[in-house]
Every structure is written in C-alpha cells, then in structure tokens.
Nucleic acid binder design. Structure first.
Lengths: 136, 136
DNA sequence: ATGTAAATCGTAATCATTATGAATTGGAAA
DNA sequence: TTTCCAATTCATAATGATTACGATTTACAT
C-alpha cells in the first residue's frame, strides 16, 4: 500500500484530503513496524504539534475500515501498520524487539477449514512472535 | 483441567486454599466458554456478593501463570477459560455468538517454522472465529 | 467569494486494568 | 485451642488506553 493508492481509496469513499490525514499516511508509509496510537501521536507531535487523540483514533478507525491500515493486538494494546502490498493472502512473523514484520506465505486455513464441517468461518488469526535475525 | 488438578498445582506452588479461589475455580469448571473479568465478577456477585476486582484479576493472573486457565484477546478484552485437558498441542475455533470453543487438532507451525530459518520463534497464535453449527 | 458538511481541536468521560493500604484469613506452631 | 504471621482479600483510588463532546476550523463544491 502506498500513499497514492490510499488517497484513491479515501476519495472513492468520499473522504476529504486534509493535512492531518496526509501526515498520518506519510508517517506510516515510512515506518514498516506496528505502531500504537500513542507511538503515532508522540512521533507526530514533534513535527506537527497540533494533533489530538480524537483525530488519531478516528482516522485510524477509518483507515482500517477501508483496508489502508491493518491492525493487531500486542500485549494488550492495538497496533497499526500499512496494509501489505502483497495481493495473495498471507500472515506475519512479528519481532518483539524491533517490531519489524516478515511475511509468511502459508495459510493454515486450508488444513484447518476441513476439520470444521458445518461451521461458519468468519475470520482467523495466525501470527508468530519472536526475534528476527538482526535482533537475535 | 478439573478442580482437583488445579488445587494440586496451586498447593505445589505454595498457594493457600481460600474460599474465593474455590468460587472462581468452580465457576470456570462449570462454564466452558471464554469469560472476561467482568463477566466473572457479575456472575459471582449474585452468589458471593463480596468479590472485588483485585481478587478476580490477581487470581486470574496466578491461574494463567500456573497453566490452570488459558487466556485470549477478543474485541479488545482479555478472556479466560479452563485450560484444555488435551495433552497434545492444539488450537481453537471460537463461536462469536455463544462463545463455545472447539479444538482444532492441527498446528500450522510445522509448516510455517520452516519458512523462518534464522528466526527465533518464541510463541504463536492461531484462532478461527465464526459460528458453530448450533448458532448458525 | 460563500455555504455547508466534514474534519479537527482541546478536553473530559469512560472502561478495563493495576496499584495501595488497611483489614481479614489460612494454616502452621505453640 | 489459641496465637501468630505471611498470604490473601477488601474497598477504593490511580492509571492508561480509548471514546465522546461541543466549539471551531477547513475542504471543496457551487
């Protein structure tokens, strides 16, 4: 996901181009780690002092809803990052030191779905946590 | 996991047998769904009016640490349930209506681990969400 | 340029969780 | 049984993340 594509999606859904949305998208596009709302606010307030909780949270929710950002829960806090470019379904290894991620091409649902006949499957979560080679 | 086994573990680790721990274990052993701390408190205060947040949270943490309860994060809240009996590693389907779970015998780590040479894997999470046959 | 709905600001409210200090309790030992 | 002390619980306050509110500002179509 890049900034231009994100704006295409926002415009198509009737969202306006504002300076704060620009700032948020720029930050995410140049940082490929998972960030919390507070991380985001802290980093942004250095360069753009007027950025409120409301603006951050509201736009994060909008972006996740439109598939621009993806979200996961790590140690009790919501974390966000740019949605992956990959057009094929995949999952993530997440480094608990530096926060960087690595795509895992396999999806366990092919195997597991067969074990659940008569069940209606809505979604699934598969994540691996540990240390990346650089942090080890 | 049954109540006797839970007490064995607690005693072995020097924890005392208190009425509140008894009440908590009884509740979990007769409800196989994931419950939040508040669920637990609400249900328990009907029968045992003197049950505080502190007692609930502290004992939940103790029980999870000892492997008596297992924990997961659903829609931003921590949920708890009795640790499964199964001696082999497995994962869960969770019904988003009734909260009941079904064990899934497969684990994707056998496949995925191979895709991460040089990575140090600490843990992983694989859960499937949807509706069980009864709720569909 | 102007009007208007959308977006943002600054701050307060809410909700889950954790911490604190006083009071109570389990269980061993006298 | 009674006493004692550390473990536990109670009642409540503090914390930290998230959401909500009313006033103000802004994007952008007309």
């Amino acid at each position: 996901m890049n900034i231009e594509k994100a704006w295409d999606i926002l415009k198509q859904n009737g969202y306006k181009e504002t300076s704060k949305r620009t700032q948020i998208l720029e930050l995410f596009s140049q940082d490929d780690r998972y960030l919390t709302a507070r991380d985001l606010l802290n980093v942004m307030q250095k360069d753009y002092p007027s950025m409120s909780f409301d603006t951050v949270y509201r736009n994060l929710a909008t972006f996740v809803g439109l598939g621009i950002l993806e979200e996961t829960e790590l140690s009790g806090e919501r974390h966000f990052r740019m949605q992956c470019e990959s057009d094929h379904h995949h999952h993530h290894f997440i480094c608990m030191d530096c926060g960087k991620i690595k795509e895992i091409p396999v999806c366990p649902m092919e195997m597991a779905g067969a074990a659940l006949p008569a069940y209606e499957i809505a979604s699934h979560k598969f994540e691996i946590y540990g240390k990346c080679p650089a942090c080890k």
